[in-house]
Design a binder for these strands. Structure first.
Lengths: 259, 259
DNA sequence: TGACGTCACTTGTCCTTACGAGTGATGACT
DNA sequence: AGTCATCACTCGTAAGGACAAGTGACGTCA
């Protein structure tokens, strides 16, 4: 069970052996792997080599290591929370978004003023360094413990053009959609989905385990003439939640888009 | 520029210092970082400590290291390819999907027979171990070099119920949608989006850099009575491509969904 | 001039040693 | 019996040394 030669570096051979044992079910999810000392003996290698192999498996998200306890096979668990990216409107004109009743705010939303970056400027159809109202929230789903960072961005010129909007730039998105609609806009939305590894601050505020990517959604509300009015960002750990969309066929032939 | 004490481990202090220098722009994207030897001298630490710090930055996706050359600041590059998740139908009844004209198949698609897993079974409204036609393709966008893995799964019972489908279970999805429609189905689709770290084989076939998550989309076609008929999976590196969706407001109030 | 070998630089791998720090059980002391 | 110190086990951090392997420039040789 210990002699392997094929691929390349020693630690990769060790990592491959452990990985195979995990994927084949020899090491069940949530079970305790052999300790570093045992792996050293089992494969006849030094501790740095064992630790290097373990580091590779951590980076793949296959195992979790707990100081003083050992390495555990990560319960490959599929996401436990499905976030429906849909928008509905009730007969009395209010907007309802799935998740609006799931998430709870863990703190007071923090409002601030900022400026567009290259990315947010592009999404909002503006240049760089345009003035914005910003509002950040930390959302928590008490059922699953899932945490998410939520941000809304409203251009100054939009806030000033819409009655009541400039006074409450940190309202709930559903309320903002209602104000925009009352102002005569017929809203449609586009969403952009990306994934990336967390920076340390995202890792801590979202309480992410090792090797857990972040799913990052940017929802832009478009009003009359398809003009971008409002940006809503959501980011959360991809280990706990997944996204769900509904699609129906258009009538017109589609054209590809590239950036 | 070398004395730091705050956070915790030495290598974390070194990593924090380098990270700050990168994010503040002191080290420009694509520029060469100091070599390990230089960092050892600069911070007065040993090589393992420097390498540990560098490993942390690699795991965050901030730098790329090339053997024999050095460490480079990753050009934080936003995705260069936007994949529109939309479906259109032309007047003559054919289905058109954006990306159908972008992607090229790098090899012959490989057809096979398999069985549902827990995940695919749930998506297709079946149990486990139900018989399926499978078809895998490797797609490449010659413009950006982006690679993607594509998979279609058709339950046996669906293939047998639809004329012509069982003979060509590895057709292009647009063709399959046409056959399903000709059989009398009015199609709608649901998509589930997840992100996870690649396994070694995904890493190699998609040619992914370090610390690059995979975006994984499962599109399910629903026919009459909302019955799931057909599963289409797409996965690609989140460093190169992003997803785009279009949303319009429903009429009915929405209800949350949990799994 | 051109081809090629060498050399200096880089990171990659692997080993040894040592100690710090978190965890849980064991056992002694009150 | 209950409390708490100790200990054995785990992983985390840090240092040192040695050699392999990839890269590119420089200089020599034909």
């Amino acid at each position: 069970m210990s002699e392997i030669q094929r691929p390349g570096a020693l630690y990769q051979q060790v990592a491959a052996a452990i990985r195979e044992a995990i994927l084949s079910g020899e090491f069940a999810p949530d079970s305790l792997l052999p300790s570093e000392a045992q792996l050293m003996a089992r494969y006849g290698v030094s501790r740095p080599t064992v630790r290097n192999a373990i580091a590779a498996l951590r980076a793949e998200g296959l195992i979790d290591v707990r100081h003083g306890k050992g390495s555990f096979v990560r319960s490959s668990g599929q996401p436990v929370l499905t976030i429906e990216r849909r928008i509905s409107r009730t007969t009395d004109g209010a907007f309802v978004m799935p998740g609006g009743d799931i998430w709870q705010e863990s703190e007071e939303p923090s409002a601030y003023r900022t400026r567009t970056t290259k990315i947010t400027g592009r999404l909002l159809g503006l240049g760089e360094e345009e003035a914005l109202f910003g509002c950040d929230r930390l959302l928590v789903d008490p059922g699953t413990g899932t945490r998410a960072m939520h941000r809304t961005l409203i251009p100054f010129e939009v806030a000033e053009a819409v009655p009541l909007l400039a006074e409450e730039p940190c309202s709930h998105p559903a309320e903002i959609y209602r104000l925009l609609t009352q102002d005569g806009h017929k809203l449609t939305w586009t969403e952009t989905v990306r994934a990336h590894m967390p920076l340390p601050d995202e890792r801590t505020t979202l309480q992410l385990p090792d090797a857990t990517p972040i799913l990052h959604i940017a929802r832009v509300a478009h009003g009359t003439d398809d003009r971008p009015l409002f940006l809503e960002e959501l980011r959360f750990g991809a280990d706990r939640a997944e996204l769900a969309y509904r699609i129906t066929a258009d009538k017109q032939p589609a054209r590809r888009t590239r950036t």
